[in-house]
């Protein structure tokens, strides 16, 4: 992949870069404050929280989860577009286990997660050991994985009844949807692992300059391996939530298109596709922007299909803004105008 690293002085990373995504989120919320009645209304029904905002958080769960994994993959200058298929596989396994074997909850949860991590490890192996470009490595799994998911469910939509498992998608813990708890947990653990241990530093270092990282004694290969496994894990969790949500597994559609949403979330969050410094909080905000954008579009009665076009345009805009060449050409134009 071609990476252009120029040595222009750019303001320090960190909080500054979060301002733009935060403002974007604020703009969308502000729009809704004026144009969508009851948008900020939160009520307690049966000691459970309900309302548009809670709904956004709840629905954003899969995207947030995947974008957490994707953030780390992108930070190593990689990409994982197989996450949608891994979601389908994870859901398919869970649904089949419940519907066909009646396995205990522990098995129903751990087996899909383990398989998802193995799939991630497979991507990581292709990328770090064989040297296949990340996009191609994960493309193989993206398509073959969809087939595997259909194989597991025999092409059918497998439905099930299992109160304990459904809790993952529809339950409430202390009045808050359980999915939000899961997000908070995964986010918190990831944030801790990358910021309180040296893992984050190593990931950034590998993404920014693999040669120098190797010379400094970092095992570039293991780091890459780990982030793909983690991305697989996140997709696996998202797959469980998706399955629990609809009480079934739809191998054709589960997770479809989520890979771009996740990439978009990561990029909107101020993370560079060239790898290096990353911000999980940024990706979280990015994912919220996407979901609130989608919800807003939907509540305005615009067909859901439009969101894809809008998202695609947003990606173009955002990564043009990230492009050094583009910024320079804009700057040059301004300079020419001002005498």
């Amino acid at each position: 992949m071609s990476i252009n690293k120029t040595n222009h002085t750019i303001n320090n990373h960190g909080f500054v870069t979060l301002i733009w995504p935060l403002m974007g989120l604020a703009a969308i919320l502000l729009f809704n404050l004026f144009f969508t009645p009851n948008f900020f209304h939160i009520e307690i029904k049966d000691s459970h929280l309900y309302g548009s905002l809670i709904d956004i958080l709840n629905r954003a769960a899969p995207v947030i989860l995947i974008s957490i994994g994707m953030t780390l993959v992108i930070a190593t200058a990689g990409i994982d577009i197989s996450v949608g298929s891994v979601i389908a596989i994870s859901g398919a396994i869970a649904a089949s286990l419940i519907a066909k074997t009646g396995a205990p909850l522990l098995v129903v949860v751990t087996v899909p997660l383990l398989i998802s991590m193995i799939l991630g490890a497979w991507n990581g192996f292709l990328v770090s050991a064989i040297g296949v470009q990340p996009i191609i490595a994960s493309l193989i799994l993206m398509v073959a994985g969809r087939g595997i998911a259909q194989l597991i469910t025999d092409g059918q939509i497998v439905t099930f009844e299992n109160k304990a498992f459904e809790y993952i998608g529809n339950g409430f813990l202390f009045g808050i949807p359980f999915t939000i708890t899961i997000i908070a947990l995964v986010f918190g653990v990831t944030q801790t692992l990358t910021r309180k241990t040296a893992l984050g530093l190593f990931i950034e270092s590998v993404g920014c300059n693999p040669t120098a990282s190797r010379f400094s004694g970092i095992s570039v290969r293991s780091i890459k391996q780990v982030v793909y496994i983690f991305s697989g894990f996140c997709a696996g969790v998202a797959g469980l939530i998706a399955a629990a949500n609809i009480k079934g597994a739809d191998s054709n559609n589960a997770g479809d298109g989520l890979e771009l949403d996740a990439i978009l979330a990561v990029v909107i969050g101020g993370n560079s596709l060239d790898g290096g410094k990353f911000s999980l909080t940024g990706s979280l905000i990015g994912a919220l922007i996407i979901q609130s954008l989608t919800t807003t579009i939907l509540t305005r009665g615009v067909p859901v299909e439009v969101t894809r076009v809008v998202k695609a345009l947003v990606v173009v805009a955002v990564f043009l803004a990230q492009s050094e060449t583009f910024r320079n050409s804009i700057r040059a134009k301004f300079r020419r105008r001002t005498p």
Binding site: T197, L199, F215, G217
Partner: peptide, 29 residues
């Protein structure tokens, strides 16, 4: 430039990198 510094990281991070790599990621400084 290509094999020494990690451009995007801070001076501090660049300085502790080899020591941290030697210690492993769990033994965080």
């Amino acid at each position: 430039k290509t094999s020494g510094i990690i451009e995007e990281l801070s001076v501090k991070e660049n300085i502790i990198l080899a020591l941290q790599a030697k210690k492993g990621w769990l033994h965080t400084i």
